[in-house]
């Protein structure tokens, strides 16, 4: 089939309007889209990048932030290799919603998922969330923190490349320890005991 060494799924989440779609378009198409409508449901892009000479394919799922799309977007958490949780550094409300998003991650994502916290729109003057605060929040919940601007193309490449590198390293380490690879069951942090009621 296609020529790539690893395939990873990356899912972007966060309130509507924080710039998820812009981040993805900036990274995949190198542009800042003027006045596109809000994302409906889930959008999907592919970009293949190079990590230490190996082709790594990123499957990027850009989700709509509104409540009514929540159950659709939740369906993507489980198989995600990395999650990008985005807030708008000029919007206190988007930062205040982070705990709710973390709750979603806790409920639906796999335990091994790589999570990045992204403060977007740092190009704007009216910054409401100081870098320090974002940094602390990320640390507390074991996320990698980065501030970006999709508009000014700041740190966008770095964000996705860090994810590609992080996941590639993980995959390589796992290949070196095949037993751990076979560990059962893989997948989500969701308790798989759903059926333990029917044990023999």
């Amino acid at each position: 089939m296609e020529d790539y060494k690893y395939l990873f799924k990356v899912v972007l989440i966060g309130n509507a309007g924080v710039g998820k779609t812009c981040l993805v378009r900036r990274f995949t198409e190198g542009l800042f889209p003027p006045g596109q409508g809000a994302t409906i449901g889930v959008d999907f892009m592919i970009k293949t990048v190079d990590v230490d000479g190996e082709k790594v394919k990123l499957q990027i799922w850009d989700t709509a932030g509104q409540e009514r799309f929540r159950s659709i977007t939740q369906a993507y958490y489980r198989s995600a290799n990395a999650l990008i949780l985005v807030y708008d550094v000029c919007c206190q409300n988007s930062f205040d919603s982070l705990p709710q998003w973390l709750n979603e991650i806790e409920l639906y994502a796999g335990s091994k998922v790589l999570t990045f916290l992204v403060g977007n729109k740092v190009d704007k003057m009216s910054k409401e969330i100081p870098t320090q605060i974002g940094q602390q929040f990320a640390q507390r919940y074991d996320m990698t923190f980065i501030e970006t601007s999709a508009k000014e193309c700041e740190n966008v490449e770095k964000l996705f490349m860090d994810i590609a590198r992080g996941l590639t390293k993980r995959a390589r380490d796992l290949n070196l320890q095949p037993e751990e690879n076979n560990e059962f069951p893989s997948g989500g942090s969701t308790p798989i005991s759903t059926f333990s009621c029917c044990k023999i």
């Binding site: 409906i40 449901g41 889930v42 799309f69 159950s71 659709i72 939740q74 369906a75 993507y76 489980r78 198989s79 059962f184 069951p185 997948g187 989500g188 969701t190 798989i192 759903t194 059926f195 333990s196 029917c198 044990k199 023999i200």
Partner: peptide
């Protein structure tokens, strides 16, 4: 609904690969 189908395909995968597979695995683990 395209988004609905995609979501449901994901759920179907996880139901089989995780929940149902776990049942079989548990029985074999004995």
């Amino acid at each position: 609904s395209v988004d609905g189908v995609c979501a449901m395909l994901n759920h179907a995968g996880s139901t089989l690969e995780q929940d149902f597979r776990e049942v079989l695995y548990t029985r074999l683990r004995g």
